[in-house]
Design a protein around this nucleic acid. Structure first.
Length: 213
DNA sequence: TAGGCCATCTGGTCCT
DNA sequence: AGGACCAGATGGCCTA
């Protein structure tokens, strides 16, 4: 199955344009290419397309009297095909926007080592935990407590530009050894743990109250 | 090579 | 009717 990734600035325009694709996604795989032919946006082996083609054949009886129906059938198929293509484009753009939002979120989170990009789920979990840590710090500050439980780093000083860093550049799923609250996180997974409230560590996405964020 | 992550396609559902 | 959103399916890429 050939996957085609294309970016559409304007769906209606691109649908009729000679070259609707522009390779601009940072996630673009080299094996995936764009085509100027809109019909190729549908996988040639896609069940839906095969179904449409089957319908097309069914709607093509040889008799002259049915010719108007044949034309209607073809028209309907074309309309369906066009709708599917447009829906695919919208969905693709929607996911691109979602990914852009995730990238923006990554930028405001404490920095990572150069080559360690948080996955989607890690980004969401880290953001949740980071917000929790900041909120907790505020709460402690309001109660006049000078001893933060969020040591070693004072979260007040942890704006994204003054973020903690860690030296281990292992893959997100790996660990650089046991993490101690008294030492900065040394891997992505440690970092996720680092910002995680203790009561959430078994299920970081599920607040203690049971309310999902 | 298995598993994780990702992008895309697709059909269903809900909303305007 | 058409768009937004969602979840399942699929296949490619990468890494341990």
């Amino acid at each position: 199955m050939v996957l085609l990734k294309c970016e559409y600035r304007d769906e209606e325009e691109e649908l009729t344009s000679a070259s609707p694709c522009s390779v601009s996604s940072s996630h673009m795989s080299p094996a995936q290419t764009c085509s100027s032919d809109d019909e190729q946006l549908l996988s040639p082996t896609s069940p839906a397309l095969m179904h449409l083609q089957a319908q097309e054949q069914e709607n093509s009886p040889p008799s002259r009297r049915s010719r108007p129906r044949t034309k209607n059938g073809e028209t309907v198929l074309k309309v369906k095909k066009t709708r599917r293509i447009k829906a695919n484009n919208r969905e693709r753009n929607r996911m691109h926007h979602l990914n852009s939002a995730l990238d923006s979120l990554r930028e405001v989170l404490p920095s990572l080592p150069e080559d360690a990009k948080l996955t989607k789920i890690e980004t969401l979990r880290f953001a949740y935990n980071y917000i929790w840590a900041l909120s907790e710090t505020l709460r402690l500050a309001e109660h006049g407590s000078s001893a933060s439980t969020l040591s070693p780093m004072s979260v007040q000083d942890s704006s994204p530009s003054q973020s903690p860093s860690w030296s281990c550049s292992s893959s997100p799923s790996s660990s650089c050894g046991s993490f101690s609250p008294a030492s900065p996180a040394s891997s992505t997974s440690d970092m996720l743990e680092y910002w995680q409230p203790a009561e959430h560590r078994m299920n970081p996405f599920m607040p203690a109250s049971g309310a999902f964020i």
